[in-house]
Each structure stands twice: as C-alpha cells, then as structure tokens.
Design a protein around this nucleic acid. Sequence first.
DNA 1: CCTGTGCATAATCTGAGGTTATGCCCCTCA
DNA 2: TGAGGGGCATAACCTCAGATTATGCACAGG
Lengths: 305, 305
Amino acid sequence: MHRLRSLVPSANYLFCFEAAARRRSFTAAAQELNVSQPAVSKTIRLLEEATGLKLFRRDHTRLELTAEGQRLYKETQEAFDHLHMVISSLQKKHSNDVVRVSFSASFVQLWLLPRLKDFKAKHPDVSLRIEESSRDDQDLVEEDIDLSARLGNGKWPGIHSWRFVTEEVMPVCSPDYLREHGPIHEPADLLRHALLNFEERHRTRLGWREWLERHAVPVARLKQDFVFTDALGSIEAAVLGQGIALGWKHLIHDHVQAGRLVLPLRESYRSGQAVHIIMPAQRPPKRGAELFRDWLIEQDADGAA
Amino acid sequence: MHRLRSLVPSANYLFCFEAAARRRSFTAAAQELNVSQPAVSKTIRLLEEATGLKLFRRDHTRLELTAEGQRLYKETQEAFDHLHMVISSLQKKHSNDVVRVSFSASFVQLWLLPRLKDFKAKHPDVSLRIEESSRDDQDLVEEDIDLSARLGNGKWPGIHSWRFVTEEVMPVCSPDYLREHGPIHEPADLLRHALLNFEERHRTRLGWREWLERHAVPVARLKQDFVFTDALGSIEAAVLGQGIALGWKHLIHDHVQAGRLVLPLRESYRSGQAVHIIMPAQRPPKRGAELFRDWLIEQDADGAA
DNA sequence: CCTGTGCATAATCTGAGGTTATGCCCCTCA
DNA sequence: TGAGGGGCATAACCTCAGATTATGCACAGG
C-alpha cells in the first residue's frame, strides 16, 4: 500500500476536492460530479479529517481555500493533469500505432477496399498499413504483421485465428460473355469456353482442372487461354468479357451484386476450408488491430453471400 | 470533473495498480491492501478496460508489466510520492502552527471554554492545543508551550508577560444555600458554615484561613468540611449548594451572571497580584499565539467583573 | 421581514467494490 | 505419471463507503 493511502484513504476524495477547489463551491462541484451537495460536503470533511488539514474556510455565502487548501489544489491538479497526459499519450500511441495488415491482392482490391470507408468512419484513429502479399506462410512476428488472412483449418502454431469466410468457388463471367457464348447447361460445357486461370508462385489455389474433376468432368487436355499471376487478374478479365474465371464467393460478391459478373452455372465447390483472420499469439495485440479484427468479423462475409 | 476521471473512473484503481505493479503479483498486492486476490484481479481488469490499455501480461505463473504498464507505474508512483510529500509537509507546517496553551483546569472550564467559540470565529485558522496543568512553574520552552497563565507580579526571567486579571477572592455560595443558611452579615459568620476548600499539590493558593485572617477573624481551629484538589471542584460543589467556597473573581464571573452563585458578603480580598499571560522570551512567538494573547487581553477580564 | 442561497447534519439507502467458491493452467516433486 | 501447490480469472453473492433525501442554520439582498 502506498503511503499516500495512509494519508488519503480514498484517492477519490481528491477528485472531489479538486472539483470543489476549482469551482469554489460544493454545490457546483456536486453538479459537475453528478452527486448531491451533502455528498461533497461529507467527502471534503472526511478528507480534512484524514489529513488533519483545514482545506476550506466556510462562510455561509462564500467558500475559500485556506493556504493549505490552495497548495494541495495546485499539486493535485498538476498530478492529475500529468497522469491524464500519460494515459492519453499511451492510449494515443496504442491506438495510433500503425496496424500492419497483409492480404492477397485480390482480397484487398475485391473485398477490402470497397468496404474500408466504413472502417475508417468507425475508427478514424486507427491507421492501417495494407500490404499485399502472395504468400500464406508469412511469419507474422518476424515480418511485424499485426493481422492477416489465411486459408485453412484455422489451426496454426503461434497463431490466433478467427473464422472469416467459407471457401466456396464457382465459375463467373460477364453478362455480355454469357449472352454471346451461352447458354451453359452443365459443367462439361465449360470445356468449350475460354477459361481464365491464374497461378501464384508461392501459393496453390484451386484451379480449373481440380474444379472440373470435382464435378465429374474428365479433363484429358485443358486449354489454358490465359493464365494470370493472381485471382485478381483472372476475375477482372472475366469482368471484361474475356472468358470464364473461377471466383471465390466473397471476392466476387460485389461484382455479382453490381451485375458486372454472373454465375453461368448453379454449381460451386466448397473445399471445407475457410479463410481465417490471423494474428500473432506471441505479443499483445495493438488496440487498432483488435478493432480491425472485430470489424472484419462484423462484416459477416458468409452471411453477406 | 477532472478529465482524468473520464479515463480512470475511480482513482482508487490506481492505488491497486501501483501495489500490483510494485509487487508484480495480484496475490501479494491483495495481502498488502488487505483485500482478496479476486478483488485485485477485478480492479486491474476494470482499469484496463477503462483506459483501453493492457497493463499486465498474465502468464499462469508470472505476471509482467507491459511497456504501457511500466510507464503508468512509474508515473503513478511519482504522482503519489509527490502528493504524499505535499500533504506531509503541509501537516508538518500545520503542526508547527498549532498553538500549545496551558492553563489550570479551573481556568479552562470556568473561563476559557465558555468564550472559546468567539476566538474560533475570529481566528478560524488558528488551532489551539489546550492542556490543563496544575503547576505554575512550567518551563515553557522545555515543555513546548507557547502560552500560559501565571499568578504573580509579572516579573519572571525569560518570560514575556501581560497582565490579564487582578487577583480578587471572595466567598461564594448558591442562592439556595444562602436562603437556607443565611443570612451572613460579616466575615466572622462564615465560621458557622460549611467551608469548601481546595489544596493543590504543586501550587499554593489563598485559602480560607488566610482570607479570614485578612478580614480580622481570629481562627483558632478551622473546620474543613471538604477539601478538593483544585478550585474547580470547590466552586462546582458550591454551585451544588454544599457550602461556601472561595471564588476568584474571573473564574466565578459566569456562574454569578447566570445566578448559579451569589456573593453572601460584600468583602473580598485583593492580593495585589494578578494573573498574567506569559509566553517564552527565548523564541519568536507563533502568529497564532500572538493572536490568542491579543484576544485574551481584549476580553478585559477586570472590566468584565 | 421575507426569500433565496449554500454548507452542515442526520437518517436512510444502494451500488461499487468487496468476498467466497471454483476453475484453469502451469510448475515441481516423488 | 499423478498429486499438490501456486496464482490469475470468473461467477454468484454480499456489504459498507459513499451516496441520497430532508432539514436546519446563517447569511445577503430586496
């Protein structure tokens, strides 16, 4: 127990004292503190008894600080101002620390950017540094990443994870393409179309061959009209009417909603995996990162589909 | 309300935090604060929630301060240390300002207390420590007494003195006693009455024998019905109708005014001495002592009689 | 004189902060 | 490996420090 407590049994007495001293009125202090005047009267009396110091001179129409009261008021105010400054600056530092987040380019462009305005509105103090990455095996601590997304079962050592969206993949194309080259009745029909694919250097994603085989379409030789280096490329090419791409449910959501892309078939493929929000377990999360994580989860990407 | 309160709803949270941070253990802090461990756990959690800062890292066998926690601990400790120092120094100064006065019990009870309210009203900032003493030969410096009263000629080495009231002594009794046992016509009649006397161990005061001899009443054998240990006792017995006491003019003044005591004879005895206010000459007087001395003189005890 | 203001006091109330019981996770030791 | 101990977290419940309401007193001002 700090020795101050032996002199001031409740530090809250000092809150009350500071208000009364500043306002030079127990009644005004009571209003400010949202308590009754007798509560202030009693608290000040308790403080005076505890310290043995007479802090106020009470005249019936005037309240004045004694010399001791003035000294204590000045010092209390300075101590409180200082503590307020310290906590505020710690908070500011904490919340204004740049939150480093890392996602695939497709996620950033197709999902996050269209929604980021909402996050900024809700948390104007949080700064995000958004990095695009083409890898899933990042060491979050080593690369100083506060938050990322990863496809999988959510069980990774040294990682905290939160399920974000189920992996569901389906063919997509532009309405114009479908009008010109359709209709498409079954998955096997896709073999007669320009299929847009992508291959990433550091990451394997479900491609046309696997998708077709999972829909009982035997693939002897697959003609690859275009091969892009990421999902973003193939999806944007689809939007431009250059063929049919494989689209991840959450990534194509906005294009479909806007009518820029349509689903030529009902069929889709669910891998049983999900995209998870991940954060490093080895250190306390930045406040901003927590806020961003919570906001991501709130978006309910599964429910939105 | 100070803005700190918006960040820390109860300043007592900081008492708890400081102890936990210093001890690096909620359990040890709880013991120190005389509360239970869950109380500390909850309080720290409340503080963390209120500030939005994670102050401790909890491992199951270790408790560590975060960087924020360390900063806040350091600043809180300094603020508390400073406030403790301020209050302590104010207290020390205050105790230096306490005026220590020493009077006989009869003077305190019969003269000072009925009038003290007036002094407090005029000098609310002056604190008196009133001691009752049965000696006239106190060493003011050694006994740390700022002001006292002494019967004599006012000439004592190392002492500043101010004449307070002439010594004048007269018989007093209650109105009932006089009605029942009176009338008394001359001093010699007193020998037929119950005379109340007192003897103090360390101080000689004029008694019945001397009073009677100074009024030409030969005293062969003096019957002492009651002997008290101070003037207060004999005067209060007179008020209760148990006999006739010798009363000092200033001490009986209020009883006579109130009709609780009467003067059965016109005769009184003036010793030529006076009660003096005395203060030590060896050190400068406290302001409060001067104010009290001035107030005592203002009462004009001689004029009031 | 009357009315309004503001601090003090007493009786009573209540919710912030405490308790008790328990759980979980670690570590140590036999 | 299992038992026991230590320490923080949580939930249900408790209680008294600090709050309220009602009233009194002393002033100031009209």
